[in-house]
Design a protein around this nucleic acid. Structure first.
Length: 280
DNA sequence: AGTATCCTGGAA
DNA sequence: TTCCAGGATACT
């Protein structure tokens, strides 16, 4: 899905649009994607929106919560009037169209007739009503808990390849395939290097590059490479600034060597064979 | 540690 | 027709 920068962009956008509004209706078009009882939160006001890792949580009155995971193709589109919603956009999967579209799975309407369309082509995402925010085990990349001592601690005890560790949401919350690949490139580290093989300097560099690349992604409002859109159906622009992700065969931005791709843990890894030497 | 699985549709 | 996809989990 959207990774941390995409979800945070959505959170920032929606904070100014729906906080203070009261849910009047929830239409569930794809049952398996809505967990819990929607009627429990009908009539409740949204008092805030938080995000930890890739999970967005609407905080409601009286200790109710609506947690959302967009997975790979989830979108949250905001309309001032849910009955007259038309979005114009051109990226794949959802073309210019009236809402609800063929990929709309849930519609949340507020008392002023504004609302949200949860669209999700691949049906992996979910919404979940609960009495407490969905638990996220690891520190979020942008939280103070994600500090250098913590990062060093998890690296030095792990025998996993560094890329696998960085994408483990129980160790660090928020990184996905795009930003992990790009952070490793910026730090000049091969994705398969064992985490426990890092020295102090390498650890510090990678720590800083992770934060840098996440902030850059946020600055461009995320990457609209596949299905991600802002709630107004505009696109993010980090895809125009990819370092190695999705750039197989294209020249390395530093040394012009063609970027290589390989599969590992079911995911594509992209790297520059010259800048990111294998192991020590 | 690797692979299959949940889904759908665009690209090669 | 086959491969591919910002995720995460459940298997062998």
């Amino acid at each position: 899905m959207p990774e941390l920068p995409e979800v945070e962009t959505i959170r920032l956008y929606l904070s100014s649009k729906i906080v203070g509004k009261t849910i009047s209706k929830i239409d569930i078009l794809t049952k398996k994607q809505f967990i819990g009882e929607p009627q429990k939160i009908i009539g409740h006001k949204i008092t805030g929106i938080i995000r930890r890792g890739k999970i967005l949580t609407f905080v409601l009155e009286k200790d109710w919560f609506l947690n959302i995971h967009l997975k790979l193709t989830g979108q949250l589109l905001y309309a001032a009037n849910v009955n007259k919603a038309v979005f114009n956009h051109k990226i794949p999967f959802v073309k210019t169209q009236k809402m609800p579209s063929s990929t709309t799975r849930v519609i949340i309407t507020f008392t002023d007739q504004s609302g949200l369309f949860f669209n999700d082509l691949r049906k992996f995402g979910w919404l979940k009503v609960s009495r407490q925010p969905e638990k996220v085990k690891a520190p979020d990349v942008l939280s103070p808990d994600f500090n250098l001592p913590y990062f060093a601690k998890i690296l030095w005890v792990s025998k996993k390849p560094i890329k696998v560790l960085l994408m483990d949401q129980e160790k660090i919350a928020g990184l996905g395939n795009i930003y992990t690949n790009d952070a490793l490139f910026l730090a000049k580290i091969h994705p398969l290097r064992k985490a426990c093989s890092f020295n102090q300097k390498e650890t510090e560099t990678l720590y800083q590059k992770i934060i840098d690349v996440i902030k850059e992604g946020l600055r461009w409002k995320g990457s609209s490479d596949v299905a991600y859109l802002l709630p107004d159906a505009t696109t993010g622009r980090y895809q125009n600034h990819f370092k190695v992700y999705g750039r197989e065969g294209e020249p390395c931005l530093v040394c012009a060597t063609p970027i290589k791709r390989f599969k590992h843990h079911g995911r594509s890894s992209f790297f520059c064979p010259k800048c990111q030497k294998k192991w020590i």
